[in-house]
Design a protein around this nucleic acid. Structure first.
Lengths: 330, 330
DNA sequence: TCTAATTTGTGCGTATGTATG
DNA sequence: GCATACATACGCACAAATTAG
């Protein structure tokens, strides 16, 4: 029941405390049960009497066990709040993380601590962060983004402690998590807007291989082919001359800004000469140019649901909700 | 395991560092292993305690080893390429941090690791983060925001390792840092725009005591009094009925959105019936309603300059640049 | 419960060599 | 040559935590 390891950098008496806490939480020890005597533990693990006593005193002071002279120690409370630590590994810091992170934090109970790290799409950084912190946290929430071969690193973590966020690559399918189904989301939402899309001659996706998920592109292409609509994939709009009849699907806000500025310089009219569908909704898109149509996952819902999963130790695959918000730009 | 040679022109403490690095690379020391105690090394190689301590502190600051009082030092990372570790303590995660953080990171050399924490305007969280991590980093970049009595906590850190960011409260004036002079910035930029401001009847600052710095309010009031302009401070615009002749100074984007929506529902014209000056520029403000006039510090410049300060170990007080960007809304 | 040994953490004083102006 | 600052190195003392007997 009790495990004590001399080598690791945690005091032995704290290891005893933690072992007993864990036994109570797991139901191996119940209220009223007698716990092993000081001498028994001391003998079994080759410890000093004081070391065991220190552990028992801490548990007694916290009201978890009770001592009876001449008899032994007994469990008096099953109500222990073990402080939980959560590692949150994001790809990069951007505006979309704001809602997600704040919703996550505010739906967690007080005794959970969250540490944030960023891998910046660098596999070596990704590996180092996970390897260095293996064993220091109760849960690992990981956003692998576009990184390849993450499974070799993630497999080193205990499976039930891992949650995959936002993008779910197939090599990590064995882990639970909450993610976007980019292929389905873009396909279905373009379907929903089909009656308006037919007014345009051509669909253009502004797509960065580094930042956007491949499956978003797949879904876009599938829709265009199924509906027989001419389409094009652009890396950026820097050198692109916008044309009447174009409908732009824009995941990146800098490109969105560029397109609108180009449109104005050419005296084009939005939703007439060209159309825009932006990916990921933000505050000001509601009013920019009378409203930008967006396809957006609900990051607040994602953060809230994630908090629930962590706290209830749920292990599932969950697709996060996604909405089409029709506004003036389409 | 450890070799120290008095004669060669390398400081003894660095020889100890190198010996331990080598042992880790060769696999003689693994993550979790305990390394020999200070006293053991001191005795074996006839060194001063301080010399060994200096070596261990360097390894600790780089995140390679960890100390446990009463027990010893333990290997925490097998990645010895990290030369510096930086703690970055933000108030909260929001969109303005994006430019700042990304500019900071991309101007740092590869072998510097940055860990981010958030205090969420909670002094206890602030204290715990700093106290728990004291000694584990080479530099501490701290955003105290509106928190009071931060000096008692910050004083526990070695002075030359501390950099204060964004807001510089007077009790932390002894530390170096890069910050905004909110009072001066808002005063001077309102002066710059004075010729347009006179077209309005009243200036209104939408001001949250929790999030915005007091000195911003002071500068606003000073300007209005010096120029003899009627003014008002509002906590929020939730229940406020906007009036013709109002000029709003808005640090918060949610309030900005509310004002614009109210304006539209009343069929007011921007820059004629009401005016808007927004604090902190973001991408889309360039095009919202033909352009929102902003007073904004340059967060990219702030992040870049901060990276330089850390790498060159500069110790100065730097006021970050601030610009008025005149657009359609004024 | 008390004593003792070991370990890290911190502060102070001192000395020496080196770089800078 | 001199003054100064800084990094390196040594020695000592005491506090606090851990562990043993």
């Amino acid at each position: 029941m009790i495990t004590v390891n001399k080598k690791i950098g945690v005091p032995k008496y704290q290891q005893i405390v933690f072992s007993i806490e864990k036994a109570i939480v797991r139901g191996k020890l119940n209220k009223g049960d007698q716990i092993p005597s000081i001498n028994a533990i001391k003998k079994k693990h080759n410890l000093s009497r004081d070391t065991v006593l220190m552990a028992f005193n801490e548990l007694k002071n916290r009201g978890i066990i009770q001592s009876v002279v001449g008899k032994g120690y007994y469990v008096t409370s099953e109500n222990i709040s073990i402080k939980q630590k959560v590692l949150l590994l994001f790809d990069e810091l951007n505006a979309f993380k704001e809602d997600l992170f704040n919703a996550f934090i505010s739906n967690l109970s007080e005794n959970i601590e969250v540490d944030i790290y960023f891998h910046h799409f660098n596999l070596n950084v990704f590996k180092r962060i996970i390897e260095d912190n293996n064993g220091n946290y109760n849960s690992y929430i990981i956003m692998p983004a576009n990184l390849k071969n993450t499974d070799k690193t993630v497999n080193k973590l205990p499976k039930e402690t891992v949650y995959i966020l936002d993008q779910m690559p197939c090599e990590l399918k064995d882990y639970s998590g909450i993610y976007q189904n980019f292929r389905k989301d873009i396909y279905n939402n373009l379907e929903k807007a089909f009656s308006r899309i037919v007014n345009y001659k051509k669909l253009l996706l502004i797509f960065s291989n580094d930042k956007q998920p491949q499956s978003m592109k797949d879904g876009f292409i599938a829709f265009c082919k199924d509906r027989n609509i001419p389409f094009e994939i652009l890396n950026s709009v820097d050198d692109y001359m916008i044309k009447k009849g174009d409908l732009y699907v824009v995941p990146d806000d800098k490109s969105l800004l560029q397109i609108i500025k180009k449109m104005k310089s050419l005296n084009f009219t939005l939703a007439e000469d060209i159309g825009i569908i932006s990916y990921n909704d933000t505050l000001l898109k509601e009013i920019v140019e009378g409203g930008i149509t967006t396809i957006s996952t609900d990051f607040t819902a994602m953060g809230k649901r994630l908090a629930e999963m962590i706290q209830n130790e749920e292990h599932q695959h969950i697709e996060n909700v996604n909405h089409l918000i029709l506004r003036n730009s389409l």
